[in-house]
Amino acid sequence: MDAKCILKPIEILLIEDNPGDVRLTEEGLKEGKILNNLNVVSNGVEALAFLRREGEHTNAPRPELILLDLNLPRKDGREVLAEIKNDDNLKRIPVVILTSSEAEQDIIKSYNLHANCYITKPLELDQFISVVKNIEQFWLTVVKLPPGD
């Protein structure tokens, strides 16, 4: 385990418009026991503003992991994904698509747009919690993240 991880919480950005799902994700992350700071934005426009530290998000931390829902108001999650991965500054941040859709075309599109992985939200509570914990575990302890700026 990295010393950085222990000392400093990992910044995670959750882009999700369903407050219920936000809460669930929080609970899941809590159980994961890895120190993290969850930032939440509820639409695509705000998401990009946050990432680019624009407007009211001038002081926003740079997330080290993005959890992105596809069905977002104002700007669709797929668009957000595209923009993130096209932005030189942002494209190195791993994006985990976390969506209720299991449609094949969504999966394909997401990977085409260079999503790092695609996860369908489980219906069962236990599974949901488990999935979130796994995400946490995998992406924050197993995986080597790119150095931040």
Partner: peptide, 17 residues
């Protein structure tokens, strides 16, 4: 119906937990 169902089911589950 899946979506709201998931909410109900999940949170009721959470409450139970």
């Amino acid at each position: 119906l899946q979506e709201p169902l998931r909410m109900v089911s999940s949170y009721v589950g959470l409450i139970e937990r």
